[in-house]
Design a protein around this nucleic acid. Sequence first.
DNA 1: GATTAGCACTCATCCCTTTCGAGTGCTAAC
DNA 2: GTTAGCACTCGAAAGGGATGAGTGCTAATC
Lengths: 345, 345
Amino acid sequence: MDLDARKYKILKAIIDDYILTAMPVGSRTISKKYDMGLSSATIRNEMSDLEELGYLDQPHTSAGRVPSWKAYRLYVDQLMRVASLPPADNQRLREIFQSSMDSVEDVLTAATRALSELTDYTGVMIAPSAGCLKRVQLVPITETTALMVTVTENGVHKDSIIPVAPDVSPEHLYMLSNYLTERLQGKTLDQVMSALQELLGEMGRHRALFLRLMDSLVKQMEPDKNAVVVGGTSKLLFHPEYSDIERARSLLTTLETKEKLASLLAQRAGLSFSITIGPELQLPGMQDCSLVTVSYALGGGTGTGTMGVIGPTRMQYARVLSVLDAMRKALSDTTNRREAPNEER
Amino acid sequence: MDLDARKYKILKAIIDDYILTAMPVGSRTISKKYDMGLSSATIRNEMSDLEELGYLDQPHTSAGRVPSWKAYRLYVDQLMRVASLPPADNQRLREIFQSSMDSVEDVLTAATRALSELTDYTGVMIAPSAGCLKRVQLVPITETTALMVTVTENGVHKDSIIPVAPDVSPEHLYMLSNYLTERLQGKTLDQVMSALQELLGEMGRHRALFLRLMDSLVKQMEPDKNAVVVGGTSKLLFHPEYSDIERARSLLTTLETKEKLASLLAQRAGLSFSITIGPELQLPGMQDCSLVTVSYALGGGTGTGTMGVIGPTRMQYARVLSVLDAMRKALSDTTNRREAPNEER
DNA sequence: GATTAGCACTCATCCCTTTCGAGTGCTAAC
DNA sequence: GTTAGCACTCGAAAGGGATGAGTGCTAATC
């Protein structure tokens, strides 16, 4: 049995109201507040049907109805309207987001902050995949160690310390850097790996060093599992669903183990947007949370990252989507500024 | 009026018990559990005195007594005994701390995690000041930008993107790097700054670039205000003082604005250890928290950082101190491993 | 003079009952 | 198909002992 137009309308009203108030919605509320031209009795009948169909739950007999995750699913798929972010909020977003843009880290931190501030939920981001390699540079540190710096297309650069034999001079390292850069430039991770395999043969006495290099290089270009940035977890505590301390504990504990968040976001990489509701997340401690994600790219880069907002299932989905969309735009502007910086800053 | 030995003993018993149970302590408990050889009536009289002296508070007439911050102050200054960390815990610390030590960031993250796991409170760290400069390297990225990487004594290395004129070739940058390294090597931040002032005269057409460089370099060597790492905030939610949602909210919100934490830790930089109790912190939302800090150094480095543990005033001060001390030792070992890495890892 | 036993008193907490009201489901009338 | 009306349900709030932990005070004891 499918829903007729009236049922849709009533269901939407219930969800809207519940999102707003966090209180079970009664038939009277719907008939009065959302002038349906129907009496509460009629609404009651419809609600009863909707409950039977699994769209509504009743906490107890004499309470109103609460949307089920199935209802939210329907809501985000068909009922809600996503408007673009009001100019004032867009303004605010750019403001929060303006400051301190020295590194990708900073950008992500500022972005999650802005997300959480504008939505009152928690912002989550994972750095964009590295994209093409631009440059490899080995910087001598001590007699026996060097720092490997990789610069990739979208400005993500990481570094790790690797050991070198004492007979390898700084000049050697410089030449090796240039050589590697020349050979690997413009390649993606996969291509770099196979190129390195080939080059391995040409290496004579540098073979040991080279193996090390490969190791670190691959590690650096992989999307970094630890690079989940989370902002505004405490915002969640202000929503009534988490005035129950037990729930707050289990949720915040889950949010703190970044591994799970990382894999959640990684799963959604590349999707232009995704909405996952409560049980669909299949994560203990997050049964009554939803995750909304979008993909983004920094500046003109090809590498894409994923960012999202975590909130209660009773989330302002439409608004969250519009915030995420605005943020996606802001991010694609941002790094351009860095790539072609203005001399008169 | 000073306290006599018996008052000290009773006060210590009360604090110990309260730290353990988080419940107001009654006279009977003291007389029975901590065999004083005194009846509860006597204890009551003493407690009454202690209350008058400001060491104890009474939540309401018929409740037991609760230590005031003044009592904790006395406790940490004179009464408590710090033992060294039990071997089993030390073992555990090293275990948690073992993994993934690629960058200073990782070390700090792992350390705060370990701190929080071993104490059940929140761990906080600020990266060590950079120490002496080891190397400056300019890595070309695009026609008009370069990455500046600085390597400092204790392995802290940071990078920022700077613009360069299009007529500066990669070779130029390489030479400039070597030149700067030669001139600045082994200098501390202050020395670097004055050295740069002198060098500025010698710069001809690179003057604009050079000014940029100075700017970024100084920024990089300054202790980074954003580099506060916090671990295990959710642990706090498990303590009874924060089953009150209101308190939990205000505390977690405070912990999330890292600026305040940064300045707290910065104030305590260089102190071998410090304990600050509740109102002494003078931070809204943290009146019933304490902060215990110690200084640490990574490996053999001269630069010192500060780390600490934040918990309720009813904190296991002795244990926290011993954990911090063990962690300080672990940290001073750690980076040694990286500086002189083992080829057969 | 210090210590203790004894006792009246206080006050939060637990548990029970009552009341209240929001909301439902059903039925009969429109 | 819709609605008015009404009995019914059940949680939340309010009230009211009973309980017991703990105190302060006093008078007796060491």
